[in-house]
Computed example of a mutant assay.
Amino acid sequence: MTSGYPGFETIRAAVGLAQRAPSVHNSQPWRWQLSNDELHLYADMSRHLTATDPQQRALLLSCGAVLHHVQVALCALGWSSAVERLPNPQVPEHLAVLRLAPRRSSEADIDMAAAMMRRRSDRRRFASVEVPEVYLKAAAQYGTRFGAAVRPVSPADHSALRTLIRRAARHHEDDVLYQIELAEWSGRRGTREGVPARNSTAIRTADELPGRAFNDPVLIDPDPAPDAATWLMISTPNDDRLAQLRAGESLSALLLAATDLGLATCIQTEPLGLPELRDEIRFSMCEGAYPQVMVRAGRTAQVAPLPETPRRKLDDIFAELPG
Rank of each mutant, 00 (worst) to 15 (best):
V218Y: 06
A169N: 05
R198M: 09
E208P: 08
A202F: 06
R170P: 00
E193S: 15
D227W: 02
H171D: 10
A197K: 00
N199M: 13
D227H: 09
H158A: 08
V195M: 14
A229D: 02
P224R: 14
Y178P: 06
G190T: 04
Y178W: 15
R192H: 11
P226I: 03
L161V: 07
R188N: 06
E193C: 12
R170S: 13
I203Q: 02
T205S: 15
S186L: 01
L232K: 01
L232P: 00
G194K: 02
Y178V: 05
G187D: 08
D174E: 10
R198F: 03
V218I: 15
N238H: 10
A197G: 09
S186I: 01
Y178A: 06
G194F: 03
T236H: 02
W185K: 02
A206V: 08
L209C: 09
V176E: 14
L177S: 11
E173V: 05
P237S: 00
V176M: 10
I234V: 15
D221S: 07
F214W: 12
S235A: 11
D157I: 06
D223W: 11
E173Q: 12
A168T: 01
A213Q: 06
D207K: 03
N199H: 03
P217E: 05
A183V: 05
L177E: 14
R192S: 15
E184G: 09
R162F: 02
P210W: 04
G211K: 03
D227N: 15
W185C: 03
D221Q: 07
E193H: 15
E208F: 05
N238S: 11
S186N: 04
S186V: 02
T191C: 11
R189C: 07
P226G: 07
E208R: 08
T236L: 04
D223E: 14
W231E: 02
L219M: 14
T230Q: 14
T230K: 04
A213W: 00
N238G: 12
F214Y: 15
R212F: 04
L232T: 00
R188K: 15
R192A: 14
P217Q: 10
G211Y: 02
I180N: 10
H172W: 08
N215C: 15
Y178K: 06
A228G: 10
G211D: 03
I203L: 13
A229N: 02
A160M: 08
P226V: 03
D240E: 12
A183D: 12
T201D: 12
R204P: 00
D227G: 06
I180S: 10
L219I: 02
I234L: 13
L219A: 15
A183L: 12
P226R: 03
P237W: 00
S159R: 07
V176W: 14
G194C: 09
A228W: 01
W231Q: 04
N199G: 14
D174V: 05
I234P: 00
A160S: 09
T230I: 08
A183H: 12
S200Y: 00
G190K: 01
